[in-house]
C-alpha cells in the first residue's frame, strides 16, 4: 500500500515550508501529520501513542521557532516521529521509524 501525506503535509519537506503557512492552516497540518503517522506505523510497526500525543506540540514548536537554527532536543526518539517527518522530509520516514522502544 502506498502511503500518501495529506495535501498540506505534502508541501512540507523542511520546517521553513511549515513556517510559510497561515496560522489557520495549522489544525489541518496537525490532522495530516497525525493521519500520516497512523498510516505509517500501522504498516511498518514502531512506536505509536507517544508521537500522536505531541502532534500539536511538534507543529507549534517548528512553526514558532526558527529550527534548526534554534535548538530543539527531545527526551526520547519515540515521541519524535512527527518531528522527523517535518524535518527529515517525508520520503525517509517509512525507512527510519523503528528507532526506540522504551
Amino acid at each position: 500500500m502506498e502511503i500518501k501525506p495529506g495535501n498540506l503535509l505534502k508541501k512540507i519537506n523542511y520546517p521553513e515550508d511549515l513556517r510559510k503557512m497561515q496560522e489557520n492552516e495549522l489544525p489541518q497540518v496537525c490532522k495530516d501529520l497525525r493521519d500520516f503517522i497512523i498510516d505509517i506505523v500501522s504498516v511498518n510497526g514502531g512506536h505509536f501513542g507517544a508521537s500522536l500525543g505531541v502532534v500539536e506540540l511538534t507543529v507549534a514548536l517548528h512553526y514558532v521557532f526558527n529550527t534548526p537554527y534554534d535548538q530543539l532536543v527531545w527526551d526520547v526518539g519515540h515521541q519524535a516521529y512527527g518531528h522527523k517527518i517535518l524535518t527529515w522530509s517525508k520520503g525517509n520516514f517509512p525507512y527510519q521509524p523503528r528507532l526506540q522502544r522504551h
Binding site: I38, V41, F48, L52, L57
Partner: peptide, 21 residues
C-alpha cells in the same frame, strides 16, 4: 497531552498502544 491522541483505541489502552506492532 493525551498519549495516543486522535486514535481512540490508543487513547483508551495506552500501554498496549505504546508500540503495538
Amino acid at each position: 497531552t493525551v498519549k495516543g491522541k486522535g486514535y481512540e483505541l490508543a487513547e483508551k489502552d495506552q500501554t498496549k498502544w505504546h508500540s503495538p506492532g
